[in-house]
Design a protein around this nucleic acid. Structure first.
Lengths: 239, 239
DNA sequence: CTCTTTATAGTCGAGATGACTCTTAAAGGG
DNA sequence: CCCTTTAAGAGTCATCTCGACTATAAAGAG
């Protein structure tokens, strides 16, 4: 806060950018909007927008999320600050500082384009880029962060509907991490972690096709995983 | 980025705030500056300042760090973005969005007050508050983040001088976590993690007092701890 | 009915971890 | 000079965890 009254300070435009992730058909998807104006007209970008005068970045992010996804209730969705991007040349027109957020959605309703002309669409994460501005970097950072958080938090349930099977939960891990997990071991680990999931008493769901019906679970009260659910590392031990 | 040309956007003042942490005499300390002007004149605050027109937040943070600590070379110090604070009322004078950083220092030279009149001083973390603005919250968030990062990264060496003993490294963990660790187990764990530390060939240091001289180590090349060094949880297993 | 598919239960060994004990090498006091 | 104190570092041992794997149960397809 030094220099408040001593030096002139530069005014900046402040925006929020959202990396909205969901899982559709076993693949990680991200919500993108098509830009209608220069620069990057016709390119895809992460949804976002300017802070209003009386909004915090969190408030603005939640407002933008509601606008872009068309969901009526975004109050329960997982929204978390990622980091702030402030390189001087990240927007060719002017100095823009952007606070990026990650949002995780359980189901994936088609976005209805928000309130303006730009169309919005779910795109597979692997074929999302190249995006406008530095959004490729933001998206990659969001993926890294979410992948790391799956290890030590109960975040995975944010990708799942209110009631889900352990198979669905496992698919969240496999999809985000991009690798397969052993089903009995995953099950043992999840059930041994108090507060991660709690069984829905009598319910079982036909998973939509063949096979034995799976028991249903709800997200538990815990937020951190103790001990963590570590993803297998490539280098086990170079003894 | 929607609405760039459609809506007016509010200009914001953008600052950086720094939670500069070090360990002095077995206690966590934080660098504070005394405010000379209203609001909060006479209160202590985290060092920080406005972004210059052509600076990224990271560049500004490193510049402020050099100014506030008086260190000639801050290029090697650990500096990391924490999060951005943007509540509309966090500064009573105007709308200020602040990007907060954590910085970790090995040794603790007395700060020489920077280039302006405000005095700067190391304060014990436990008796640091109350601070100006929302800096208590920022400082607490920084402590949480650093504590969590000690578990899964090699960050602890950032608190240590270039050559250090395992006892000193352990004290970093104990100080930040606020609990005692078993020395042989800590030693075993650190040495079993490839790339965490590497021995300085023939060197041993008289630790300054009684006891067997300890071997010296340098920070290794690894950045992540696989597997992590978990802090003991209060609830071991309520079986 | 039989095969396939998916959920769930159980087994087994290697590795990691927590709680200890013991030895070694220095300083300091008498 | 000897003995105590202090801290480093080596080693032990039981337990827990985890990965790999096998087996059983419950559904649909043919």
């Amino acid at each position: 806060m030094r220099g408040y009254d001593k030096y002139a300070y530069e005014p900046f435009a402040v925006t929020v950018d959202l990396a909205v992730l969901t899982i559709r058909g076993g693949a990680l998807h991200v919500l993108l909007v098509e830009r209608g104006q220069e620069p990057y007209a016709g390119h895809w970008a992460l949804p976002g927008g300017f802070l209003l005068p009386d909004e915090s970045a969190e408030t603005a992010a939640r407002r933008e999320l509601a606008e872009e996804t068309g969901l009526s209730d975004v109050s329960g969705l997982h929204l978390e600050q990622l980091r702030t991007y402030s390189e001087p040349d990240r927007d060719p027109r002017m100095r823009v500082v952007s606070v990026a957020f990650t949002a995780l959605l359980p189901d994936a309703p088609e976005p209805h384009g928000g309130g303006d002309a730009a169309q919005a669409r779910w795109r597979p994460y692997d074929s999302a880029g190249p995006l406008a501005f530095d959004h490729d970097r933001i998206l990659a950072d969001a993926h890294d962060r979410v992948g790391a958080q799956l290890e030590s938090s109960c975040l995975a349930t944010a990708f799942c509907p209110p009631e889900f099977t352990l198979g669905e939960l496992q698919q969240v891990y496999e999809t985000v991490w991009g690798l397969g997990l052993d089903r009995p071991n995953f099950r043992r680990k999840v059930l041994a972690t108090p507060g991660f999931v709690e069984p829905v008493p009598g319910a079982a769901r036909l998973t939509g096709g063949r096979g034995k019906p799976a028991a249903l679970y709800r997200a538990g009260t815990a937020t951190v995983l103790h001990p963590p659910l570590l993803r297998p590392s490539r280098e086990g031990r170079p003894a």
